[in-house]
């Protein structure tokens, strides 16, 4: 019943992708990732401080999980920064996948649509399989798709806000107008019902981090999101009933007792 979830030719059985940041401790990160059933995890690169040992522990934990790695270019504000970070990521993580983040505004961490197109074009030409973190703007997403980005990752709301889907019309439009693109909602989801909502719309997957990592019980929340993503996908495949503005009785009217065809 469930069609395949495919990212640049690699099939994933889980439609949930989780981030690896902000967990209370590394052990909880590891448990949450395991319990979510996710098969891909996002991570990043930062300057190495030789006196710090935490980085090595993180890398070992991630490797032990044997998940597919989706490195990001978080924090980049220029095309050159994103290109360089992507190239460094490819060398270390041995993957052509890159979650392209190019920030245009520091207040809401909104992607810069113009620089995003420029960077995506150069990364694709350099052999990367680009997963751009983008807004829900239809024209931007069309341009990214036409460039060769087979996967698009529009936001639901600003990163880390937990606000849920701010513009359902825009997301529904993306799904309708880009039926062949792999669409993953990335950023802004706060609770499992948000994930279920976008999966019911027909999105292919969900990427989130804060909603799980900052929950009181990240492991339980990871499970909850996993169930919500599955439920939403099943509902989309099943096909929802049509909406109407009036009531229709579900119990048959025919044969109702106490009713007389004519007045006594």
């Amino acid at each position: 019943m469930q069609s395949e979830f495919n990212i640049y030719g690699q099939t994933l059985s889980s439609r949930l992708i989780l981030g690896s940041a902000l967990y209370p401790n590394p052990a909880l990160m590891q448990q949450a990732l395991q319990q979510s059933g996710c098969e891909a995890v996002t991570l990043s690169l930062r300057r190495q401080a030789p006196e710090q040992q935490g980085g090595e522990q993180f890398w070992q934990l991630i490797r032990d999980l044997k998940l597919k790695l989706l490195p990001n270019t978080a924090g980049c504000h220029s095309v050159q920064q994103a290109l360089t970070l992507a190239q460094m990521s490819r060398e270390i993580f041995q993957t052509n996948w890159i979650k392209l983040e190019l920030i245009g505004d520091d207040y809401n961490l909104q992607p810069d649509p113009i620089l995003l197109l420029q960077a995506a074009e150069q990364l694709l030409a350099d052999g990367f399989e680009v997963l751009p973190y983008c807004t829900d703007d239809l024209v931007l997403c069309k341009r990214l798709y036409e460039l060769g980005c087979k996967v698009l990752m529009p936001w639901a709301a600003p990163i880390g806000s937990g606000l849920g889907v701010l513009n359902p019309y825009a997301l529904r439009t993306l799904r309708e107008r880009l039926p062949d693109a792999t669409l993953i909602v990335d950023a802004g989801l706060g609770v499992p019902s948000h994930a279920c909502q976008v999966m019911e719309m027909g999105f292919d997957g969900v990427l989130l981090n804060s909603a799980v990592a900052l929950a009181k019980d990240p492991v339980l929340m990871a499970q909850a999101f996993s169930q919500a993503v599955s439920a939403g996908r099943s509902a989309f495949v099943a096909g929802a009933m049509p909406k109407q503005d009036f009531a229709s009785p579900s119990t048959p009217v025919l044969g109702m007792p106490f009713w007389l065809q004519e007045a006594p």
Partner: peptide, 25 residues
């Protein structure tokens, strides 16, 4: 790239960044 390390010469004022894996979202 790693295969260019032996051929890379530094000069005064260069900005060198050496990065490693960290958590990310």
């Amino acid at each position: 790239a790693a295969n260019q390390y032996p051929n890379t010469v530094l000069k005064a004022g260069d900005q060198l960044d050496i990065v490693s894996p960290i958590a990310g979202g």
